[in-house]
């Protein structure tokens, strides 16, 4: 179900400098899939467009959604001021999400980079229902020792960390962490900055394994109407038949070999 609603902030805290962790009470949690996202709207009427933010976690009784986001501008700076009990305007749940069934019984890499780490949490939880915990290899990259969500992720799989400054885990990026730990997988699921996703696409092609990557683009509507957030695709997209799929509705998760990034 897609709906725009005024939900309630259940809690909010700063997880790391500029990284915020907000739980939102909403019945949208019922249908939320790992890899889906919410559009969050500001109260300030000068910043009108929604901010697409991935769903980090759904609570046990499916009554609340967690988003972990970075302050990137005016809109997210406003969200960071919200206190428990305050209203928050959201539209959701949006996008296709990751298909966990493709990883049933398999060894999987969950790869997250920076603010692409949060959606890996709900995904890791969901994967525990279809494959053994030791098969879930969570490879996450950060800038420095602010390894937010690490403890949460450790509950659901083996966590390997890469940091750009080498302060924690492997010095470098997630690809370096795979190499250093001599890891292997049958399938990859990833979210992060474009250079990381490109590297993963190349790695998956060489290893001949499927990789499902979650893409990001500037959006206006979030529901597939404006055609603002497209990605070049190998096959004709089903909307416009011009090899330009809509990230918000046809994605944000695509099989890496299907997209030209």
């Amino acid at each position: 179900m897609k709906q725009k609603q005024t939900a309630v902030v259940a809690s909010q805290r700063e997880l790391a400098p500029m990284i915020y962790d907000m739980w939102i009470e909403s019945d949208l949690a019922k249908d939320a899939l790992p890899g889906q996202f919410l559009c969050v709207y500001t109260r300030n009427k000068s910043t009108l467009l929604p901010r697409p933010i991935s769903i980090c976690e759904v609570n046990e009784d499916k009554s609340a959604l967690r988003i972990v986001y970075r302050i990137a501008g005016q809109g997210t700076a406003e969200f960071a001021t919200y206190k428990a009990g305050e209203p928050v305007e959201i539209l959701g749940t949006l996008g296709n999400g990751f298909n966990v069934e493709v990883a049933a019984g398999k060894k999987v890499f969950l790869m997250g980079g920076g603010i692409g780490v949060p959606p890996m949490l709900q995904l890791a939880k969901a994967l525990n229902a279809v494959t053994a915990k030791e098969n879930i290899q969570i490879v996450v990259g950060y800038r420095d020792n602010q390894t937010f969500l690490r403890e949460d992720l450790e509950k659901y799989g083996q966590v390997y960390i890469a940091t750009e400054d080498g302060s924690v885990g492997t010095k470098g990026n997630v690809m370096n962490a795979i190499e250093e730990n001599a890891l292997q997988a049958d399938v990859i699921m990833a979210c992060g900055p474009m250079p990381m996703l490109r590297a993963i696409k190349g790695y998956a092609e060489n290893a001949d394994i499927p990789a499902y990557i979650s893409l990001e683009e500037h959006m206006a509507c979030g529901v597939g109407a404006c055609l603002g957030c497209v990605v070049k695709t190998k096959e004709k997209d089903h909307h416009s038949h011009v090899n330009n799929a809509r990230i918000c509705t046809d994605g944000p998760v695509f099989e890496a070999k299907e997209v030209d990034i």
Partner: peptide, 24 residues
């Protein structure tokens, strides 16, 4: 069919937005 313009195609501005979808 028209493929439209490269991305980014949309941006927020004060009290509004800019778009250059290019009629995909």
């Amino acid at each position: 069919p028209w493929p439209g313009n490269p991305t980014p195609r949309v941006a927020e501005v004060y009290g509004g937005m800019l778009n250059a979808i290019g009629l995909q």
